[in-house]
Design a protein around this nucleic acid. Structure first.
Lengths: 233, 233
DNA sequence: AATTGTGAAAAGATTCACAGCA
DNA sequence: TGCTGTGAATCTTTTCACAATT
């Protein structure tokens, strides 16, 4: 498969900030870190595999590439970073094995408990997102200083000052910030103090966290501005 | 400024798909395309500048870097791609000029009209997002096949089949897809047919569009999976 | 005949380091 | 002295092209 015929167009550009990769020796074997760019594409492959007909035994890099909007060479290179890759020359990749390998590479073992902070419009919309469970996550709690009477997607909103307590007992692994920008930093700090080491920030503010904590920023205005740039040539 | 002391941590990794840049001659002068990575950071610089005290005359690359979670060298390199850069050695960048230059590079002239398709939870949350106007955009319409009685953020929800008509008269420039995944492709096609050439897709589905149309994907499950990966080492 | 796996080449992005200017 | 602007070096990512395998 080559550069596409009808073209997927520019499938989702980047959002670019540094980091460094190192090789980690594990019992004599060396497992190289999966490149950041590859990690960014694995979820898309996984979703495609999930949508595949149930009896389907194998799939080719061409097919994955076509449906995910990348090149076949890229798919093969990406999959080659997973330990113990599962392709068979002349045949393709075994669907089940590949799903398992990608899920493992993404750290999706048991259901990952996620906490949402902010029960306003955005928090509610996120909590109501269907795909949570299907994709290996579970909303384990929703906290706010307000809306304490509300129940969202069957989950009772709890006070923010209970974050620390519940974080431990429910093993909150990922925190989602869905508050106004003004309190985003404060919430991020509370999450970090509660032991959360991965944060997804929907508030339009850069938050600062100590080393070892990963933050990803999702921001409507930023996305629109990037689109506006490409629109204007 | 160097690699940070308290560290911004890994500020938002990527989400990586190809594209190509070319030099465009304009009246004999050659304006090189701004690198994709730079385009991805400009909105963050712009937001920082917007939050700066009103009387502030200049700002240094160090300061921008610090607050946006990148290195000073990177800021300078990025700003050097804007035509007619505005820094003064020994002093810094003139705040107002820089704001204007970045806004221009991002194609933010007059208010850009945005259409939201999908008036459910996500559509409502997005429409209610305060920063729209402040950042150079305006919700010019909300369409759905349902919820036609509703009014969101003061805007009446209109039928999807009116998309074509209104797209022309209101000059919809960017379309936001906030529908279930099952109809995302259909909506994308409708947007393209209506003349929209930039799409922000919040539905968890890859949409295919003809060349010349830019799509950006924002997906909760993808973001969580990427975070899960970094969480698991 | 079909399709993976992968070195090597090319392209792109980041960092370095320092000359140049206010 | 302080801070920008930028070429050159380095690192990362993508693409190419083809041998290897079923």
């Amino acid at each position: 498969m080559a550069p596409m015929n009808m073209a997927k167009s520019d499938p989702t550009p980047e959002s670019p900030f540094r980091r460094n990769s190192t090789a980690r020796p594990i019992f004599g074997r060396v497992t190289r870190d999966i490149p950041r760019a590859t990690v960014g594409r694995l979820p898309s492959y996984l979703r495609f595999l999930g949508g595949l007909a149930l009896g389907r035994p194998t799939v080719s890099s061409d097919e994955i590439a076509e449906r995910c909007g990348v090149t076949a060479a890229q798919v093969r290179k990406d999959l080659s970073y997973l330990d113990g890759s599962s392709g068979t020359r002349g045949v393709g990749y075994e669907v089940d094995t590949l799903r398992t390998l990608i899920a493992r590479a993404l750290g999706l073992g048991a259901e990952v408990p996620v906490v949402i902070v902010g029960a306003g419009n955005m928090g509610s919309a996120l909590a109501g997102y269907g795909g949570f469970t299907k994709q290996g996550f579970r909303v384990a709690g929703i906290h706010d200083i307000d809306h304490l009477d509300r129940q969202i997607a069957g989950i009772q909103v709890e006070p923010l000052d209970r974050l620390g307590v519940h974080a431990v007992e429910r093993a909150y692994a990922i925190g989602i910030i869905a508050t106004p920008a003004a309190v985003a930093q404060e919430v991020a700090t509370a999450l970090v103090d509660a032991g959360v080491r991965a944060i997804l920030n929907f508030a339009p503010a850069v938050v600062e966290v100590p080393p070892g904590v990963t933050v990803r920023q999702v921001d409507l205005a930023t996305e629109l501005q990037i689109l506006a740039h490409y629109l204007s040539r």
